[in-house]
Amino acid sequence: MSIQSSTLKINHACESGKKFAELFYEQLDKNRHLIGQLYHDTATLIWNGNHIVGKTNIVQFYMNLPAIDTNLHGIDSQPVSQIISKDHTSILVTCNGRMAINRKQQHFNESFMLIAENNVWKIVTDTFRNY
Rank of each mutant, 00 (worst) to 15 (best):
S2H: 09
I3S: 09
Q4A: 15
Q4T: 15
S5D: 13
L8W: 02
L8I: 13
L8F: 10
N11A: 14
A13Y: 00
S16I: 04
F20D: 01
A21Q: 02
A21F: 01
E22V: 04
E22K: 08
F24Y: 14
F24T: 01
Q27G: 01
N31L: 08
I35Y: 03
G36M: 00
L38V: 12
H40L: 03
L45C: 11
N48Y: 04
N48M: 03
N48E: 11
G49Y: 05
N50M: 09
V53S: 11
V53Y: 08
V53A: 06
T56M: 03
N57M: 00
Q60P: 00
F61C: 07
Y62H: 13
M63A: 12
I68S: 10
D69F: 09
D69S: 14
D69H: 12
D69V: 09
T70H: 04
H73D: 09
G74N: 14
I75K: 02
S77R: 01
S77L: 05
P79C: 06
S81T: 13
I83S: 03
I84C: 06
S85M: 11
D87T: 09
S90T: 14
I91M: 05
T94H: 12
N96P: 01
G97V: 11
G97P: 09
G97I: 10
R98P: 00
A100L: 11
R103P: 00
R103L: 08
K104F: 05
Q105M: 09
Q105S: 10
Q106V: 03
Q106C: 07
H107C: 08
E110W: 00
F112E: 05
F112I: 03
M113V: 14
M113Q: 14
I115C: 07
I115L: 10
A116Q: 13
N118T: 07
N119D: 12
N119K: 06
V120Y: 13
W121L: 11
I123G: 05
I123W: 07
D126N: 13
N130D: 12
N130K: 07
N130R: 05
Y131L: 03
Y131A: 06
